[in-house]
């Protein structure tokens, strides 16, 4: 197991992104319909995490907060990591979240945003040729996620469920 003492912990809020270097951990709490995208450079052992609320900045007028949207958030996170020496060809991705917290009719636009967020993140990562090697997505419950740069493991915690690593 990872020794949690003395490692740097970076917390990412809603509509926010950040990076952490070896041997740090990066986390976001209480993900619902939002999606956490982790980009990991396994050579540098550096990770970036984005907590994404909405699929696209292009569909919305009030889009000044770039960290809210899958397209602008992932692009800005890549820039931030590149400044620290990340090489795109070394990146892999892990994603979590995008649940439907309330069981309204799933065709309803508003309440299917979790699924749309997941799809948007997958499309963008595919376009960037970054492969998603693990995911814990959808369903109807919240998640707290922690990514460890030391070994690239991604811990998922949910209410009333056993913790798991993906």
């Amino acid at each position: 197991m990872i020794n949690m003492d003395n490692i740097e912990v970076v917390k990412v809020g809603m509509a926010d992104f950040n990076i952490v270097k070896n041997p740090g951990m990066i986390t976001t709490l209480g993900l619902g319909s939002c999606v956490a995208v982790v980009l990991y450079d396994a050579k540098l052992k550096m990770a970036g995490m984005a907590h994404i609320m909405l699929p696209s900045s292009k569909a919305i007028k009030n889009n000044s907060n770039r960290a809210k949207f899958a397209d602008t958030s992932i692009s800005d996170l890549l820039d931030m990591m590149a400044k620290e020496g990340m090489k795109k060809q070394n990146l892999i991705a892990k994603i979590a979240g995008g649940s439907q917290m309330f069981d309204f009719d799933s065709v309803d636009d508003v309440f299917s945003v979790g699924r749309k967020n997941i799809q948007a993140c997958k499309d963008i990562l595919a376009e960037l040729k970054i492969s998603i090697i693990a995911e814990d997505i959808g369903e109807n419950y919240g998640r707290t996620v922690e990514f460890y740069t030391l070994d690239g493991s991604f811990k998922i915690k949910s209410v009333g469920k056993a913790e798991k690593f993906i």
Binding site: G30, L31, G142
Partner: peptide
Amino acid sequence: AFDMAGAILSVPAILFG
């Protein structure tokens, strides 16, 4: 829904977003 506050509030947050 019974869950973490962050997860439940993400629903109105997204609407508001």
